[in-house]
Design a binder for these strands. Structure first.
Lengths: 218, 218
DNA sequence: ATTTAAATTTAGGCAAGTCTAAAAATTTAC
DNA sequence: GTAAATTTTTAGACTTGCCTAAATTTAAAT
């Protein structure tokens, strides 16, 4: 039995490790969880006793296979619920996160499975992130930050790195959605701002934008 | 901010009081919550401090208006989710309760509202229980136990008192569903068993069944 | 290589929600 | 109308998840 809080820590560790089974630091976990390092240490010990992470004092942790499966299961539920909220309940992509944070902890194999069926097996959530399958396989996606694209090349927007409401609303306002084709006109070395063209309309975006938008080469 | 556990107690008190604002006993609450009387006392004090119940030591509690609204809100969510599970995710009526017990605690006004829209404003859950509106009004339903129907009268099944899987599966097996017309042929004084007729087929049901099936006069 | 800084862990404490055991109040029974 | 039985409350303790403050370990800097 994995508690609500344990699931959140596992998810945090998964995201920090970024599928590399790199060691994750106590401070990193505490920061991500908005708790103190001492709280993180407490939880790490508990996760370690349950065999969900490997832990070496002062060194850091990484997920065991059991822990990885638990984390991915939560992520799967989170992303399926996000699809549900957007596709069926008319939520916009900047409103879904908070509610999905609650729904991801509902424990029912059948519920998750039937939700997947009902949504017709989506492979991406509303922010372009991949949805793991029920066996815990996370589809790998090679995605580039827009900032890496050279002038005179074009690309397709496939996801966001930052998924805060502010950023998502910015994108909505400027008609940048998943699937939008972006042509890079020029880059400014000074402030890393970039001139881009979408649908014949051309304007300048800051590095805050180019560093948080994932694209693929056309 | 009402916690998960507080919501469960409020729901229990609501159901025990049965919309009469009758006093509910500590022991009654403890029994319903599967906890000990001392735990119930602790929680009652907390609910009282929050203004959700009126409490007099050794006498009992009843919900304040604020408490009633909180309880009804949880019940509304529970029943909406049950409809969702049955109508959209192919759950059967005996499988929904446990999952709905979890979903009922999700906090999002918009979620509940949009779910109601998505389900096209259902007024009854899969067991025939009324779904309160978003202002906390519980539709009143006058329903009779099948045991009260006299021989040679017929009635329509509109709900269940006991909604355990065992009973619901019994009803499924014998093709008794909400809306089914039942004609009472005779009653046995000795064991309160009853001979009934459904679709020209006639058989005997025990008092355990007649005391747990709600009907309305045709 | 030792000192300083940063990260991590330990120690002790707090609130929520539960428990057991014992005390107090109420109800029931004769 | 008092004694026994039941119900309810209190007292003290445990677990989870968090905190602050202090101690320890590791890393960085000169």
């Amino acid at each position: 039995m994995v508690t609500f809080s344990e699931e959140n820590y596992l998810k945090a560790i998964y995201h920090l490790a970024m599928r590399n089974d790199a060691l994750v630091s106590t401070n990193g976990i505490a920061k991500k969880m908005h708790t103190k390092a001492s709280s993180a240490t407490d939880m790490i010990k508990k996760l370690s006793e349950k065999g969900l992470v490997n832990y070496q004092k002062y060194k850091g942790v990484h997920l065991t296979e059991k822990g990885r499966l638990a984390a991915v299961s939560v992520i799967r539920k989170h992303r399926l619920w996000e699809v549900f909220l957007v596709k069926k309940l008319n939520f916009s992509w900047d409103e879904v996160h908070e509610v999905a944070e609650q729904l991801e902890h509902i424990k029912s194999e059948k519920l998750t499975q039937q939700l997947d069926v009902f949504l017709e097996y989506p492979t991406k959530d509303p922010h372009g992130d991949p949805i793991p399958d029920c066996d815990g396989n996370m589809p790998s996606t090679q995605k580039l930050l827009l900032s890496k694209i050279e002038p005179n090349n074009s690309c397709i927007c496939i996801g966001v790195k930052d998924s805060t409401s502010n950023f998502l609303q910015y994108l909505d306002k400027h008609n940048i959605a998943l699937g939008t084709k972006i042509t890079v006109i020029s880059k400014e070395a000074f402030d890393e701002s970039m001139t881009i063209k979408i649908n014949k309309k051309q304007w300048v975006i800051s590095k805050e934008v180019t560093h948080n938008l994932f694209v693929k080469i056309n």
